[in-house]
Design a protein around this nucleic acid. Structure first.
Lengths: 192, 192
DNA sequence: AATAAATGAGTGAACGCTCACAATTAAATT
DNA sequence: AATTTAATTGTGAGCGTTCACTCATTTATT
């Protein structure tokens, strides 16, 4: 028997890149097949449909990243350290695999609607960490959702600028600036 | 002669809503026509093609918003006041027309690639204001692109949270928190 | 020889867009 | 004031194309 796992991986990477470049709907099966150098029928040996391919690509990695983040924050004690570690993780993730990062966290496609509320995501982990930090008095009283949005925004928009070439450095080179900015956002909040 | 301007406006609003909801590619001419309650052919009386419709919707409003922002910042003297006014403008814009705001600033479609570098956009205005503020010593030395990205991120990600229902208040109700957070991002930056 | 992987022409459905025609209305003519 | 004209808007069946997906067949590996 033959081993098709290499082919599956090739299809997955090719699809990921095209999904990010052109969007899922605008990417055709023929696009993926011809770019990957395989026949259309081959794709269906490994994935049920285009939608299923897009969802598998999303859900697997989206949840894995959330788990990674959660495991990471547990290694630290204070809100400040947890936050710093998480921000650094975002930077490292972007630099290691910008295409996957964009697919999961920057592209605005319909996959998020399929995420049920009980799933742990990067957002829920961030909110949890911030909520506990506030409860322990490590940051001023404030709305957790607002705080999470602002912190996430600092990191993600810088990633967007990087993806568009408006910033040329690696995110990791900017990580301490990002960590400091995120902390400033949290630390000064709450006071009127 | 008849007046088709009402119909054109109806088509534009309907298309805008569907583009934001499902994405441009996934929105079909039949979708737009049936939702607006007009015939497919009517759409082509007012717009050359789907692409042209999407671009007209984008470019007109995108540039208008940038001009509005620029006019607004000119009314203030300090970086802090200019920034505050701009952030408040983002909030007011989102609350007044969340669908248009999402189309212009949150949705990740290909329209941005058609924006030439010499066009003045919300991003370039923000960068200009920050650059001048730093030059006048109103904020510490720092990379303008990074600063703009972080400030923009604070505002846009909160808008994303609002659009997804994770935040329920109007953005205008949060605007002073956003103004303060953006200022903290800028004011503390630069120092190692 | 047996089994699974890879192929690509073929399928019906859906796409963007066209065009001959119908409906509407302001202006021109009675 | 009533009627005709002319120009523009609105219509929807139909066009060629492309889409996601299938399946009988071939190719490769054990």
């Amino acid at each position: 028997m033959r081993d098709g796992s290499k082919t599956k991986e090739l299809i997955a990477r090719t699809a990921l890149q095209l999904f990010v470049e052109k969007g899922i709907t605008a990417t055709t099966i023929r696009d993926i097949a011809s770019t990957a150098g395989i026949a259309e029928g081959t794709l269906y040996r490994h994935f049920d449909s285009k939608d299923q391919l897009a969802w598998e690509l999303f859900s697997t990695n989206y949840l894995a990243f959330a788990r990674e983040l959660d495991r990471l924050q547990e290694e630290y004690d204070t809100l400040r350290d947890k936050l710093a570690a998480m921000v650094r993780q975002f930077c490292a993730f972007f630099d290691r695999d910008p295409v996957l990062f964009s697919y999961l966290l920057l592209a605005q496609h319909g996959q998020l609607k399929k995420v049920t509320p009980e799933m742990e995501t990067a957002v829920t982990v961030l909110q949890k960490v911030i909520a506990r930090g506030i409860a322990r008095g490590e940051a001023p009283e404030m709305e957790v959702e607002l705080a999470a949005a602002m912190v996430l925004g600092v990191v993600l928009e810088v990633a967007v600028f990087k993806a568009y070439g408006r910033i040329t450095q690696d995110l990791s080179a900017l990580r301490e600036s990002l960590v400091a900015a995120c902390w400033r956002v949290l630390d000064g909040a709450g006071a009127p």
